[in-house]
């Protein structure tokens, strides 16, 4: 299986760096990070990632919507909130993070031994 190319968009530098560190995995290749949603569009077009991880901003639910709009028919979009322990694949499924491996599984598409995904409401 080829490594999944991942791009991370996150405004908090500390969280962006921790997520990037956690993605050190043979099946994951980090191809770019940014804290700037407006700059993200051109960077993503150049980097051609398979997966984009984007922050779920509970203070501003519309943050990143323009970026998401161009991604809907392209890479898989994983939204992650700093406020709670949930990962969600944009418009498709939602799951609670029990361990770091859950994030890697979601990126690589491996359902893992304990499939816990639910349909998004």
């Amino acid at each position: 299986m080829a490594a999944q190319r991942v791009f991370v968009i996150w405004t908090h530098p500390l969280f962006r760096e921790t997520v990037s560190l956690l993605l050190s995995h043979p099946l994951v290749e980090l191809v770019g990070t940014t804290n700037d949603h407006s700059a993200a569009r051109s960077q993503i077009i150049r980097a051609r990632p398979d997966v984009v991880i984007i922050e779920q901003n509970n203070d501003d639910e519309h943050a990143g919507e323009e970026t998401l709009a161009i991604l809907q028919h392209g890479p898989k979009v994983i939204r992650l909130s700093l406020a709670d322990n949930e990962l969600s694949v944009y418009l498709r499924e939602r799951r609670t993070v029990e361990k770091v491996a859950d994030l890697v599984r979601l990126i690589t598409g491996d359902p893992g031994p304990e499939q816990s995904a639910e349909a998004a409401p």
Binding site: F15, T18, N85
Partner: peptide, 9 residues
């Protein structure tokens, strides 16, 4: 309590 953040830290 945030699994990803805690592990990354």
């Amino acid at each position: 309590d945030h699994t990803i953040f805690r592990s990354g830290l």
